[in-house]
Computed example of a mutant assay.
Amino acid sequence: MADSKVNIKNRKARFNYEVLDTFEAGIKLLGTEIKSIREGKASLQEAYCYFADESRLMVKNMHVAEYSHGNINNHDPLRERLLLLHKRELQKIKAEVEKGNRTIVPLNLYINDRGLAKMKIALAQGKKNYDKRESIKERDVKRDMDRALSR
Rank of each mutant, 00 (worst) to 15 (best):
V141I: 14
I104E: 10
A124R: 13
K127N: 13
R88P: 00
P106M: 01
G126P: 14
I93T: 05
I111N: 01
N101H: 12
I111V: 15
Q125P: 05
V141G: 04
L90T: 09
N129T: 10
A117I: 02
K120N: 04
D140L: 12
K118P: 01
I121N: 14
T103R: 11
I136E: 15
G115V: 04
G126D: 08
Y110D: 01
S135A: 14
A122Q: 13
G100I: 08
L109M: 01
D113I: 04
D113M: 03
E89N: 11
E138H: 12
A117V: 06
T103P: 09
G100H: 08
E89K: 04
Q125D: 10
R133W: 11
N101F: 11
K94Y: 06
E96A: 13
D140F: 08
V97G: 10
I111A: 03
D113V: 05
A117S: 09
I111W: 00
N108C: 07
A95S: 14
A117T: 01
I111F: 01
N129W: 09
N108S: 07
I136L: 06
A95H: 07
K118C: 02
V105R: 12
G100N: 11
Q91R: 13
K137E: 15
I111H: 03
P106L: 02
A117G: 06
R139C: 13
K137A: 15
K127Y: 10
G126E: 14
D113P: 03
I104K: 09
P106S: 07
N108M: 06
E138V: 06
